[in-house]
Design a binder for these strands. Structure first.
Lengths: 351, 351
DNA sequence: CTGTTAGCGCTTTCAT
DNA sequence: ATGAAAGCGCTAACAG
């Protein structure tokens, strides 16, 4: 008696319970079980109920795998992005995961670590895993889209977000980085800044080049001379902030304003300036980008651009899902999300 | 002529190229192709080379799916964690992704949004996706591990990190939260604090209860009376920080020290205290937890505990992978990572 | 409403 | 060293 019990339990834990087992137990066909389990309309309610009960009793668990192999889609969305180590990136993922989850999709995530080489590998893995669609934010040094050809050839939808590729046929999801750069710079000028340092990222990437263009245009429109010596291009980490302040301390005529395209770096800059007894905003006004929590905590609070990260993630995912479900959508090739300038003390001079 | 071309292209883009196609093209069997592709020893080098060349030419891409269905494993690791919207969480994921990637595994990630209900759903999805193993950080209100039974029954390895479950048989990866809480509190006492407010999280979760116990023990060991009125349990967001300061302002005898188990909240508290003209650290010393970048930027800089997030992610993933590969490892049931107290100005009183 | 049949693409004995 | 055959678990035509 005890023996049989044990054997039963062991069978349960080792072998997968399949729809065939259920079919056998109920003396019906596997297809009916398959249909019943998925609540297909053409199965009698009674039969469905029976199937459900037996399935539960036997500990049946749907095998997505087999199902996917057959159906030729996976309900998985691949996400490839540079890094996953900032508040900003994680809000994007958070938004994506929410939307995907709602629609029954799962996210499979891979970091390119800002390198095209890893990006290439990640994208290949995604392909081999047969993701239904891909969400991509490009690495620092990606120069073309060759590595995505496998996706394009098979017409698997690819959507870019944040760091997009301008000449691509895919949907791009961005904010108006030009205008954002313009807005920040204009604001600094209005506060009386005449020598505004710009710390940006690789101009290969749309967002950095657009912000830079916005910066230049605002200078031009307001009769402030552009000075190439005030433009710094760097990886945008804490170190970049530290270096920038070092450079500033060496300058004969220091800047009176700084526009950095990232809050973490901006916050570091503020701290370092204060250490060097430079007053913010009176000696140098500072503005960042992203509206990271850090911007509300640094003293003085950081003027910044509110970047709707969570929203961007949500929209990226839901746009992709729409495509996957072939719902007729307005075929916008570029979706521009709303940003706004948040003015705080780091740039606000008393008159 | 044009017609055939078009048809050829369409065939390419629509139909999957399978090992059968390669086999046919080379007049060998599919099994040989399969073996050749995986560099199996019992295939002649010449044949292998031929297979590779044709495979490339035909644009063959391995189908993980079919392979997985057959091999009964997926090379996927499921990650279920409360949220993905803080620096801290994302460093953990970052570490996991690195290790997993190195070993040829992919991460599939799901947020429980701090709710047991979503946690249950996520875990079921993971199971249905037949992940090879699971990495879990428990939601705020999870009270037992029933929803993981499906994994336990099938002996699929589950590892907990950060928010673990003490009575579980699984490997837990944590820091010594008791000692960390103790260290912080002791330090505050050494700085002269006698009324230390503790803002913590749900005591159901090991990390919060351990930190709280550490706090109490440090008080006891140093002859500082414990006062239940100085213990606040809350969700640990910015709002909690704001509320805490509101409460403090109402107190007849305010605290002279605060130990919050999270840097974002601690930073918010410092800002709000300053707004209320309370000096930090002279009136109230403040200490946080995690060593988030925010702690280095808030003024005064925040005393905190360095929490090795990235490392925790790496170790969680690599431990799981070891188990999956059935490598004999020291069967540590709990892995305790090293933390350290980082003393900064927010708690450092001049003598 | 239900059953039969034929795969999805790959891997793995077991032969040869 | 290679091939034939069976099957992982599920789904979708098609037929009744």
């Amino acid at each position: 008696m005890l023996n049989t019990d044990v054997r039963l339990i062991e069978m349960k834990s080792d072998k997968e319970v399949t729809i065939y087992d259920i079919a056998e137990a109920l003396n019906i066909s596997a297809s009916t079980v398959s249909r019943g389990l998925r609540d297909h309309p053409s199965v009698r309610k009674v039969t469905k109920k029976k199937i459900m009960i037996v399935a539960n009793k036997m500990g049946y668990q749907h095998n997505k795998f087999a199902s996917n192999l057959r159906k030729k889609h996976t309900n998985m969305i691949g996400v490839v992005l540079p890094r996953l180590d900032s508040y900003f990136q994680s809000t994007i993922i958070s938004g994506m995961e929410k939307e995907a989850n709602k629609a029954g999709y799962n996210l499979i995530i891979s970091q390119s670590q800002e390198s095209i080489k890893k990006e290439r590998a990640s994208i290949l893995t995604m392909f081999n895993s047969r993701v239904d669609g891909l969400l991509v934010s490009l690495a620092y040094d990606t120069e073309n889209l060759d590595h995505l050809d496998i996706f394009f050839k098979k017409k698997i939808p690819v959507i870019f977000f944040d760091r997009v590729y301008d000449q691509s046929e895919c949907t791009n999801i961005v904010i108006d980085n030009f205008k954002a750069g313009y807005d920040v710079t204009k604001h600094l000028i209005e506060q009386g800044c005449r020598r505004i340092l710009h710390l940006g990222g690789n101009l290969l990437r749309n967002l950095y080049s657009d912000r830079f263009r916005g910066y230049k245009q605002a200078l031009l429109d307001n009769g402030v001379p552009f000075d190439q010596d005030l433009v710094f291009i760097d990886r945008l980490n804490e170190e970049a902030g530290i270096n920038t302040v070092k450079e500033i301390l060496k300058m004969k005529i220091p800047p009176d304003g700084i526009f950095t395209v990232n809050d973490t770096t901006a916050a570091t800059i503020i701290c370092k300036l204060k250490e060097a007894s430079i007053r913010v905003p009176d000696d140098i006004a500072v503005a960042g980008f992203n509206n990271d929590p850090i911007s509300r905590v640094v003293d003085p609070n950081l003027t910044t651009i509110n970047y709707p990260g969570e929203k961007m993630g949500e929209i990226a995912a839901s746009t992709l899902i729409h495509k996957l479900k072939k719902l007729k959508t307005v075929n916008t090739n570029t979706i521009i999300l709303h940003h706004e300038l948040i003015i705080r003390q780091s740039s606000l001079r008393k008159r």
